[in-house]
Write a protein that binds this DNA or RNA. Structure first.
Length: 228
DNA sequence: ACCTGATCATCG
DNA sequence: CGATGATCAGGT
């Protein structure tokens, strides 16, 4: 009697989402891919989003590109996160693209970063490269919202970074800026360009950027979960 | 060993 | 191009 199967519709509640996500814990990616009829790439070099797509499929998120949350009806965003054997993140977490123009008057309260991170379902997945992709296993899911302290850290970093963008200093920003949130390139390659504000208020072309959560931030929120 | 900057696939 | 999904990999 095989009852494990992908959700055929978007989850109608956080409870339904968590019930399904919890059932996936312990399964390998090859098991989930086979049951879902999804081919397994040899590695992630040319399929960097494959694990995310696989989990979207299993959890009933409409895969592909939408500017919405993954589970818009219940206001939840899905993030798969590669972790080592101790559950610590191996990568930073992409949040959203940074707007480089038209930012006069923007505020944290209505920002894309705050909206995206309001409610997140974290699904840890074994990510060490020595483990063959298909043998990597899915971990225990965590439904998270920023604590007051976490939101304050995020807001401070966002405001600092947005100030630099508005003031035409985007090209002075490095990944070292920000305590928990960083700004880094987010593009197909280094030749992709987008419009931004220059040092003298003029329009310039620069690399598209994205907001990412630094590893210590996600490590802390995952650790809190596993220790409780 | 780790982090920052660079990169890969797909879709509308 | 820019949004979605992220990881790669060389330099420090």
């Amino acid at each position: 009697m095989e009852t494990l199967q992908p959700l055929r519709h978007p989850p109608r509640s956080e409870e339904e989402l968590m019930r399904q996500a919890s059932r996936l814990a312990g399964y390998s990616l090859s098991e989930l891919a086979t049951l879902a009829g999804l081919p397994i790439p040899g590695d992630l070099k040319r399929d960097k989003g494959w694990i995310g797509v696989l989990l979207e499929l299993w959890l009933g998120a409409s895969a592909g590109s939408k500017p919405e949350q993954d589970f818009a009806a219940i206001g939840v965003e899905l993030k798969t996160i590669p972790v080592d054997k101790l559950g610590r993140p191996l990568e930073t977490t992409f949040v959203c693209v940074a707007p480089l123009t038209g930012n006069t008057g923007v505020v944290w309260e209505t920002s894309h970063v705050r909206h995206k991170l309001h409610r997140v379902l974290w699904v840890p997945v074994e990510g060490e490269r020595r483990i063959p992709l298909g043998e990597r296993r899915v971990g225990t899911p965590l439904l998270w919202s920023p604590s007051a302290q976490e939101e304050e850290q995020l807001r401070r970093d966002w405001e600092e970074l947005m100030d630099l963008i508005v003031l035409g200093r985007v090209e002075k920003i490095t990944a070292r800026h920000g305590e928990v949130l960083q700004l880094r390139p987010k593009a197909a390659n280094s030749r992709a360009l987008t419009e931004a504000v220059g040092a003298h208020g003029e329009a310039i072309l620069t690399l598209p950027r994205g907001f990412y959560l630094k590893k210590p931030f996600t490590a802390a929120l995952l650790a809190r979960h596993f220790l409780l």
